[in-house]
Design a binder for these strands. Structure first.
Length: 287
DNA sequence: ACTCAGGTATTAC
DNA sequence: GTAATACCTGAG
């Protein structure tokens, strides 16, 4: 583990609060100085903007430049994506103007699977707490800038926990789901390395749905936040709300079917509907 | 005391 | 197939 710094020129398509608070990640915290610190797969990273630069300061085995480029997906042209989506309609255009600095992260697959199973019928502070406790119990300890951090555990480490251990970490009724999913990953009932190579979104979804605790919404989140599948549309209460308010206009939003939203999102936003979802979600949640 | 929160699994029509 | 229902837990 080596402490490293990497700097790039500031760009509009990178705004800390937009990226870390649009609901895609659970392990980033805002510091008093306005920077954000997060634990990612391979180490700990602090990000801040200063004098027209974005400064990445972290501790990793590998090169911070490679890790940052991969994690923040700097190969994807967000300017182009925003241009395309802004032409869809005024609603999306406004949402994009609001969340102009959003980027979809390329997060670790195992961590994303476990995290979003935990997210079911749960709230964000509690989800974060559970993930932190799991990491502290089974993950590698990292010292960085005078603080202790714990990497998200390897599946092999997590597999040592009993259902009772998991319950004691505060997982609630999700304990058995996590327990079973860990085993399915470990004995390759679902082969995650192979999954990363599959292009067909529906095929990937089909595989993910085999995991206990993974339903349609969680599967879509996993694909969007970890596998760069932009043609999915995770539907939670906020997305349902914003889609109803903007397009469907039903008196009772709870009566709007998932199917209707899914179909509409496909028609309106096409292959980039996952990104459209993020802009709309962020806009509606913050307003 | 009671509701609610990034849904899913189970059970019942 | 589609519609109700239960579900850990802790914060408000």
């Amino acid at each position: 583990m080596k402490e490293q710094i990497y700097e790039i020129e500031d760009i509009k398509e990178f705004e800390l609060s937009h990226i870390f608070e649009c609901g895609q990640c659970f392990r980033w915290e805002k510091e008093d100085d306005g920077s954000y610190t997060g634990v990612i797969k391979s180490g700990v990273l602090n990000v801040r903007k200063e004098n027209g630069k974005i400064i990445f300061h972290g501790i990793f085995d590998g090169s911070i430049k490679d890790i940052v480029n991969d994690y923040f997906d700097f190969d994807t042209d967000y300017k182009k994506i925003k241009d395309t989506l802004s032409k869809v309609d005024i609603n999306l255009k406004k949402s994009i103007e609001y969340g102009y600095g959003i980027r979809i992260l390329h997060q670790d697959l195992e961590e994303t699977i476990i995290s979003f199973i935990i997210s079911a019928n749960n709230n964000i502070p509690r989800i974060k707490g559970i993930i932190n406790r799991m990491s502290k119990k089974c993950g590698k300890k990292i010292d960085f800038l005078g603080k202790e951090y714990y990497l998200f555990p390897e599946i092999s480490e997590l597999s040592k926990l009993s259902v009772k251990d998991l319950r004691e970490l505060g997982l609630g009724f999700r304990d058995k789901r996590i327990y079973d999913t860990i085993r399915k990953i470990l004995n390759k009932e679902i082969d995650l390395e192979n999954l990363k190579k599959i292009d067909d979104t529906d095929l990937v979804r089909e595989e993910l749905l085999k995991l206990d605790g993974v339903g349609p919404k969680v599967a879509d989140c996993i694909m969007l936040f970890s596998l760069k599948k932009y043609d999915v549309f995770p539907i939670d209460v906020w997305v349902r709300r914003v889609m109803n308010e903007l397009y469907i206009k039903n008196e009772d939003e709870t009566k709007v079917s998932k199917n209707a939203i899914d179909k509409l999102s496909k028609e309106k936003f096409g292959a980039l509907r996952g990104l459209a979802q993020q802009y709309l979600f962020y806009f509606r949640r913050e307003n």
